[in-house]
Design a protein around this nucleic acid. Sequence first.
DNA 1: AATGAATGAGTGTTCATTCAT
DNA 2: TATGAATGAACACTCATTCAT
Lengths: 188, 188, 188, 188
Amino acid sequence: MQIKKEEKKTRILSAATRLFSERDFQEVSVNDIARIAGVGKGTIYTYFKEKEEILEACVAEIFSDFVDKIRSSYEEAKSLSSFIERVAPRLLENVVVNSRILFMFNRKCHSDRKRYRKVSGEYRKAMAEVFQRYGKEMSCNFETMNAYFTAFLMTSYMVYESVDKEIIEEVLTRGLLCSLRGCGQDKV
Amino acid sequence: MQIKKEEKKTRILSAATRLFSERDFQEVSVNDIARIAGVGKGTIYTYFKEKEEILEACVAEIFSDFVDKIRSSYEEAKSLSSFIERVAPRLLENVVVNSRILFMFNRKCHSDRKRYRKVSGEYRKAMAEVFQRYGKEMSCNFETMNAYFTAFLMTSYMVYESVDKEIIEEVLTRGLLCSLRGCGQDKV
Amino acid sequence: MQIKKEEKKTRILSAATRLFSERDFQEVSVNDIARIAGVGKGTIYTYFKEKEEILEACVAEIFSDFVDKIRSSYEEAKSLSSFIERVAPRLLENVVVNSRILFMFNRKCHSDRKRYRKVSGEYRKAMAEVFQRYGKEMSCNFETMNAYFTAFLMTSYMVYESVDKEIIEEVLTRGLLCSLRGCGQDKV
Amino acid sequence: MQIKKEEKKTRILSAATRLFSERDFQEVSVNDIARIAGVGKGTIYTYFKEKEEILEACVAEIFSDFVDKIRSSYEEAKSLSSFIERVAPRLLENVVVNSRILFMFNRKCHSDRKRYRKVSGEYRKAMAEVFQRYGKEMSCNFETMNAYFTAFLMTSYMVYESVDKEIIEEVLTRGLLCSLRGCGQDKV
DNA sequence: AATGAATGAGTGTTCATTCAT
DNA sequence: TATGAATGAACACTCATTCAT
């Protein structure tokens, strides 16, 4: 029973993640999620109080995945550049599916930052560790570093349909390094 | 009368642009647009076949604005660096308001790229002219150049709230140049 | 247009009054009201903010009707007995349909007396005028007088199906007079 | 085990009675009843075929209580007036809690009188005994007598929040006597 | 051309009831 | 017998779109 119960929740989350990554929050109906998950509409409300909570759960899962990738990357890397080189392709891997949802969530929380912070808390912690470790190689503060990461990841998503994956990886890696270091300053 | 007609359409577009830049597509009702524009709800359907067409028109206007800024910039600039220095602050000017809408539109067109291309066609043409003129100074192809522009512009939008405007402008200008030229490659 | 507009609202109210007098608030769906009124479901929301507002409007209409009957009756009557003799059959006329709805509304407002007072305000005012005029002929205070009126009207409603109309009218008239005056006290 | 079984049913009924006397039928969910009763939601359907049956059982209990009070009252009373004087305060005692439920049930059965008769059968029998005993003191038939009792009890509930308990008792006692006897006839 | 009253398809959510355990 | 997870019909309400004026 316990197993089955968890299985239903998992199926709902998978269906939701898939649908939210394809369409906007409002364009995905609870009916759609139920149909794809293969459960009754009412069942969804056994596991989630409201539609928004489903999105939140999807986002939490994505952040948790990000955190794993960030931690494993900086454990292997001594310098900022080697960290970026490691973490970029790993994040990129799921970025297409995830960025869509993250961006969606980000928009929804624009006027309620607390809610965003709550869900992204662990991610922020991981990023704080990154800043503590490589901050001296950057010419920006913690918040700015976060903004750059977010922005470049989002961008990767935006161009991913028209640009080769290798190019995206290049843009992501160089763009990030360049922005964080303030590199190229002496070159212009 | 002809003038009045155009004036109504303009007022509708202004209202829509303002509202779409504040809220999500679905969160802006046709009623809202009519109210802000100061016209009747039915009037909107005299000028636009459906709600989505309003968004499309907003986006077209934004792209057209971008095109103007790009063209006027490269007409004044002999080198890539001088072009970037001119175009970056001009684009930045409206990027905050516009990116939101562009992003929204991009999302909506994710499964219908043709529609996106149709609206962004003139912008792509202008970018092609840029590539033709300065391409030899770049170490990337056309699509990659586009990706870098998109990336740095989106980044500017996304960090806008947490980073100083001057820093954003600097990062945008230097980051773009650096990435397009491929400078800093040896640094990674 | 003005006429037509009002006509729709009237039809909605009539339909609602009919349905609410047959079934409980929750058992009457907005769909039902729309169907009976012969209008679209959405139209109802052009005239009423929410379902409860429809009920409130029905009740207000009923009270307004009561007030008219009370006022016209005491304008014609010099003594309490002649007032009662006039007002009783008039109130009785609509009491069957109306009492049901009033009772329902009374129930809904049990924990929000302010709302009840708001809608029944004019009725209470009319009753106050009645008390001011005939109070000296009564052996009870204002609230008790109200209670008697309520009691005998409700009684009329409740016995309506099993008792002859003439008997009801008699009981209503004599019972009210008897109770208000305190006559028959010595008989108990 | 037999005891336990009965105990569960009792707990369900107590919970239901409490909840139905506080809120409307539709506003009390089976879940609520289960929670208050401290049993599983499914358990309720072991004892009752459907939600309405729970209400019916509550009503039956209330009627049974009424029957006890009526019987004990007329066993002590020789005349109608002394019966009324005895029974009125006894009935009033629980009328606040019970009337709500009775009225609810009465409404629900408006189009299915058989159902109402079924549940109120024993009460009707007791009232028949009352009529047999004091009928000659009344100027109405059996059905009318019943209607008056019902009506005045309901009314007591309706006014109980705005009127003193003593006044209610007075209105109930006098109103009943007055209506049953047709008293005051010669006084008007 | 301009309007806004009218519409009904569609939404998120609730809840009585079923049924496998 | 007792349970609560699962269900889908039903609900109040919204809103893009139409159309008579």
